[in-house]
């Protein structure tokens, strides 16, 4: 971990690594890279974190409440 990263954590600041997909060429390269993988990977878009599924964790329940009474 770099000193800059450590400093960012201590100062509660985000990492200064914001890249922008600026050019059509860069966007095309990304689309190609993920496009090639798309045919061999299950199609999914899942919510990882959201106000809708943030709740006190409970043993025996998953985050959707399955397994709870």
């Amino acid at each position: 971990m770099s000193q800059q990263q450590e400093q960012s954590i201590k100062q509660n600041q985000p990492l200064a690594d914001a890249s922008h997909i600026e050019t059509d060429e860069q966007r095309r390269r990304f689309m190609e890279k993920f496009g090639k993988l798309a045919a061999i990977t299950p199609i999914a878009l899942t919510t990882m974190m959201s106000p809708a599924n943030s709740a006190p964790p409970r043993s025996g329940c998953n985050r959707n409440g399955k397994g709870c009474r």
Binding site: I21, R27, F30, M31, F34, G35, K36, L37, A38, T41, P42, I43, A44, L45, T46, T47, M48, M49, S50, P51, A52
Partner: peptide, 21 residues
Amino acid sequence: IKQSLFHLSPLSVSLLLALDQ
């Protein structure tokens, strides 16, 4: 805006990048 993080499959990334234009 939704304060939400989504996990994308490769096809989702390709579609996202296309629609983002």
